Computed example of a mutant assay.
Amino acid sequence: MGYSIQDSIKPILKEAFEGPGAEDGSWFTNTQLDSGIFGTLKAMSADEASISIYGSTIASHADHIRYYLWVINTMIRGNEPDRNWESSWEITRVDETRWHQIQKDLYQEYMILNEKIDSPDLEDKVINILGAIAHSSYHLGALRQMIKTINVE
């Protein structure tokens, strides 16, 4: 029996952001349950997320992922977003309040994208969703390497 496109995309998107499920195994992340973007960020304090590593911070990567998802979600809705990629990298230092807000906003954009997978006209959106998965997975790898650099794992 074949899988629908929704059944194929959802676990990959979920793994990138939430990590693999206990019974699902892993397609590309560590097999630890919190090895997706949300679990990786949750383990970080605002001070740790503000450490500059090769010119960027974990906070700026997190907000850039959020911004990218916002752009994709805007395009999926049929609108043309005002793209300013440079502004998505402006965050350098965050306090705990701002750090939690970035994570909350990222989660919100993720949930919006996740809901779009169930839309009847999914085929028109697949390229955007696959791009979001690839882009977010790239940044997940960068985040995991940054964490190794600051030894907070």
Rank of each mutant, 00 (worst) to 15 (best):
W70G: 11
I51K: 15
G55L: 12
A62H: 05
M44C: 08
V71E: 14
S52P: 08
W70R: 15
G55T: 11
A59K: 13
K42L: 05
D63A: 09
A49C: 04
M44I: 06
S56I: 13
E48M: 08
D47Y: 01
S52R: 12
I58M: 15
V71I: 15
F38H: 01
S60D: 06
S45Q: 00
G39L: 03
T40M: 02
K42D: 02
S60N: 07
A46N: 04
G39K: 00
L69V: 12
A49P: 05
I72Q: 13
H64F: 08
F38I: 00
A43F: 00
R66C: 13
Y67D: 12
G39F: 02
I58A: 15
I72K: 13
K42R: 06
A62E: 06
F38W: 00
R66Q: 11
L69E: 10
Y54P: 01
D63L: 11
D47M: 02
I51T: 12
I58S: 09
V71C: 12
A46I: 04
W70V: 10
S52F: 07
S56W: 07
L69M: 15
W70H: 13
I58G: 10
Y67E: 12
I53H: 04
I51M: 11
G39V: 04
L41N: 04
D47H: 03
A46E: 03
R66P: 06
A43M: 03
T40I: 01
A59L: 09
A62V: 01
W70C: 07
H61T: 15
H64K: 08
S56N: 14
T57R: 10
Y68V: 13
E48L: 08
R66V: 07
V71W: 12
A46V: 06
S45F: 03
I58K: 09
H61I: 15
W70T: 14
G55Q: 09
A43S: 07
S60C: 07
D63V: 13
K42S: 02
H61C: 09
E48G: 04
S60I: 04
T40D: 00
L41G: 03
L41W: 03
G55K: 08
G39Q: 00
I58Q: 11
A46H: 04
E48Y: 03
T40E: 00
Y68E: 10
L41D: 03
G55D: 09
S56R: 14
L41R: 04
H64N: 09
G39S: 02
I58T: 09
S60F: 07
L69S: 11
R66N: 12
Y68C: 11
Y67I: 04
S50A: 07
A46D: 05
S45M: 03
A46P: 05
G39I: 06
L69Y: 13
A49W: 05
D63E: 14
D47C: 00
V71D: 12
T57C: 11
S60G: 08
I58D: 08
L41Y: 03
G39D: 01
S45E: 01
T40P: 01
Y68I: 10
S45W: 00
M44F: 05
W70P: 05
T57S: 15
A46G: 07
A62I: 02
M44A: 04
L41E: 03
L69W: 15
S56C: 10
M44K: 04
H64C: 06
